[in-house]
């Protein structure tokens, strides 16, 4: 009887491992089928392209013909000695600083206003948010007219308040162009941070404020002791978004000044574009764009590292 059972069960065990193996194989096939399409698109356009950017950066190449001349790292050495590249790097960091110092505070103030007891909150919120929804090209062209030297809104406003001597062609003048453009970037993106902060403020439990009320805390104390500390994580996230965004910024500058006058508003991305698609220096342009990646990468690592240390100290 016992033997019989064994004989019967033995082949059964064998088939069950077979089934398991088959099932495992089927599962692996399914996983591949699910991930492959996305990975293929991502792999070709992002991963492959990054490697190719580095590859092209080692050559002298116009991009038009097949005449690639291997240079090794010469493009990077040239880049180090290229005053325009340093100027654009400097402008990128200027944009980083301006974004952190104006976009985030403005966004926070606007977000806080949306929770104040004023009437017409919905109206205010809609208008506050509009700059972010406008197409960047539209914003760029609009501000070209606002900054215009002859009939621009800004000059008209200055005349009305008696500051005629300040009037100028704001983006046509080397010394003011970068500030005019940076102000426009901040105008566009401040509302975006308002949205992030607003979402975070909604998430703060009402009980905390009720407790503060019982303790007799005033508005400033409530902001300092409750709102601000609880907003710290989203402020960090916003700072990262703002820094990375400013390092790779392109659109508005390209539309408004194209990097001019005489490179005074050049950013790494506009310089890359100019070298690649205007001057047909694909190799050199690639070295500019690969440097952008390295810089963005280093900055991200530094921020994440600093953030981890700060958290560790708490």
């Amino acid at each position: 009887m016992l033997e019989k059972v064994e004989k019967l069960s033995k082949p059964k065990v064998a088939t069950s491992t077979d089934v398991k193996k088959a099932r495992k194989r089927k599962e692996i096939l399914a996983i591949i089928a699910f991930i492959a399409p996305a990975l293929l698109v991502y792999g070709v356009y992002v991963v492959y392209s990054i490697f190719m950017t580095f590859y092209y950066s080692l050559f002298d190449w116009s991009g038009i013909d097949n005449n690639l001349v291997f240079l090794g790292l010469s493009n990077y050495i040239e880049l180090f000695q290229d005053g325009v590249f340093w100027k654009s790097l400097q402008n990128n960091f200027l944009l980083v600083a301006a974004s952190l110092l104006t976009q985030l505070p403005l966004g926070l103030i606007m977000a806080l206003l949306l929770f104040s007891p004023i009437k017409g909150i919905r109206f205010f919120r809609s208008i506050f948010f509009m700059p972010f929804l406008m197409s960047t090209v539209a914003i760029g062209i609009l501000f070209i007219f606002i900054y215009d030297g002859n009939f621009g809104l800004l000059n008209d406003l200055l005349r009305m308040v008696g500051l005629e001597s300040w009037q100028r062609a704001w983006i046509g003048t080397e010394s003011t162009a970068i500030w005019a453009v940076i102000a426009t970037v901040c105008w566009q993106f401040a509302p975006f941070y308002m949205i992030l902060f607003r979402a975070a403020i909604v998430g703060i439990p009402e009980e905390l404020y009720e407790a503060a009320d019982i303790d007799g805390a005033n508005s400033l104390q409530r902001f300092k002791n409750i709102t601000f500390p609880l907003l710290m994580p989203i402020i960090t996230t916003s700072a990262i978004l703002s820094i990375i965004g400013s390092l790779k910024y392109f659109d508005l500058i390209y539309v408004m000044t194209g990097g001019g006058p005489s490179n005074s508003t050049e950013l790494m991305a506009t310089y890359m574009y100019k070298q690649t698609f205007t001057n047909f220096n694909m190799g050199y342009g690639s070295s500019v764009s690969f440097s952008m990646l390295i810089i963005a990468f280093i900055v991200t690592i530094v921020i994440l590292f600093g953030e981890r240390r700060r958290r560790g100290e708490e």
Binding site: Y48, M52, K248, M268
Partner: peptide
């Protein structure tokens, strides 16, 4: 992780190869 890294890649870094491709 590979997908996550994509979040911090400046699209400009891929512009030239994508144009050629």
């Amino acid at each position: 992780l590979l997908f996550m890294i994509g979040m911090m890649i400046p699209i400009h870094t891929t512009l030239i190869p994508i144009y050629i491709l």
